[in-house]
Amino acid sequence: MIEASNLAAILGMALATLACRAGGYFLFRALRPTPFLRAMLGYVPGALFVGYVAPALAAGGIKEWVGAAATLITVRVSGNIAIGIAAGTASAWLVWLAR
């Protein structure tokens, strides 16, 4: 069952999100970016994920710090992201159980 106002809100969210996804790219293509802007975009991906992680770790406690360290080390050593996520979550869980 789909109710009308719920449908409208979902479609509104979908349009707003697609505008973000597509808008940046088409704007970039239309503007013919300068070398500075191109260089900037090379740094955006890493910085973006730092932006996710830093505040979460700052707001977190020992569980998050141990989990993040375990994730980083495991991914670095194994080269496998899935193993890193599993090891990090398991470590965070162990800290949580131990307290």
Binding site: A9, C20, G24, R29, L41, V44, P45, L48
Partner: peptide, 30 residues
Amino acid sequence: LWTHPAPVLAASFAAFAVNLRMALMGPALA
């Protein structure tokens, strides 16, 4: 922030504000 009837404008704006970061991903994938 969902209510009944659904908050069409607020939900759309929330989606825009949270997903604006994606506007930087498209250019990086040019």
